[in-house]
Design a protein around this nucleic acid. Structure first.
Lengths: 192, 192
DNA sequence: CCCCTCAATGAGCAATCAGTCACCGAGTTA
DNA sequence: TAACTCGGTGACTGATTGCTCATTGAGGGG
């Protein structure tokens, strides 16, 4: 890599880093591209040299996190199907990038079809991990014979609710952390 | 009321009616005021003669529905605290104006503080009805000794999830109707 | 019949932003 | 060192949209 290529990569990474910070602070929709370029101390046009448009930017940022969660959950589920550990680990992963997922939970309905589908696809893969874990538990008679899909929607609906209304549930710090044990406890009550 | 006053009231009601239809069709944020005035066949300025701004418009529309649900639930809870009937009735009320609540579920995080607070206040009153119903059931040993708040968030989170992602769960018709029995069944499993 | 009131009008304002493009100059190559 | 490449620049464009205000004319009071 010569000087030019190094500089290009640096600029690209700078944009991603600044954009992520801004998206978390103000949400995707309320963050302007000129704000990102100003904070990154680059020209407005430079941003569009590296990313076709604003949406491509957030796709790259979100995709990295969702991919990472997916990989981690998959690794865990390959070792054992213990639902409680799976849920606990999933909540830990969410917590790590909580503020980004807060933005996601709040704004998802407003994204373009393409972006929404991409995100919901990843989401559905993770939901599927839970599905398998519960079904496996039912077969081994460890859990109640319940409507698995409903139980999962109850779970993801709750998490989404906490995330999208975070400021109501918690003044500062993590919502996921605050309600983690309660979420796990309630979910266990539902399936055990 | 003379001719003038009658006409004024008529215009106001026409605006409300057209606006509601448009908000349901395209959401609050994507509906433009000029669209509403065009569909209502009035001048753009007339809209602002009757409503200070776009937000005042949706406040009036939403407030009427929320007030109505609240009154209905309150009446029901005054007669008896049976949780299953309460939940069933609540879902019926939501279903009646489902598409308006879909808009609400999707866009709530984007409304102004004032509007959000107003809506969440009403919501919290309704949640409170459920709280009382469950607590009363626990005292009479009809339900499990559970974390009532968590159970309610599980419930409202689920309903919100179904509403905000309606197009994913149902191609046409009512999501609430489709999942009503499943919601009630799952919730009963949680508390019984 | 005249004058005043006021609901209604709609062209236009002001502000916001995503994205473009002609140009620049540092870095690379021969 | 001359010629070329290409990453970077930022003023500008075009589209959108909530809201205003000078003006109009129908309705109502005296």
């Amino acid at each position: 890599m010569n000087k030019r290529q190094i500089q290009k990569k640096k600029t690209r990474e700078l944009i991603l880093q600044v954009a992520k910070k801004e998206f978390i602070k103000k949400g995707f929709l309320d963050t302007t591209t000129s704000e990102i370029s100003k904070k990154a101390e680059i020209a407005h046009g430079t941003l569009f040299l590296h990313f076709k448009n604003k949406e491509t930017l957030i796709i790259e940022i979100l995709d990295k996190e969702l991919e990472s969660i997916n990989t981690n959950i998959f690794k865990l589920i390959s070792k054992d199907y213990n639902l409680e550990r799976l849920l606990s680990q999933y909540l830990n992963l969410l917590q790590k990038e909580e503020d980004l997922f807060v933005v996601l939970a709040r704004e998802l309905p407003f994204y373009s079809d393409k972006l929404r589908r991409k995100i919901l696809f990843r989401d559905s893969i993770i939901r599927n991990h839970f599905h398998k874990a519960i079904e496996s538990g039912i077969k081994e008679k460890r859990y109640r014979d319940i409507d698995v899909t409903s139980a999962i929607i109850f779970l993801f609906g709750t998490i989404n609710y906490y995330l999208s209304l975070k400021p109501i549930f918690v003044k500062e710090g993590s919502v996921i952390k605050k309600f983690k044990s309660s979420i796990i406890k309630t979910f266990k009550k539902l399936i055990l």
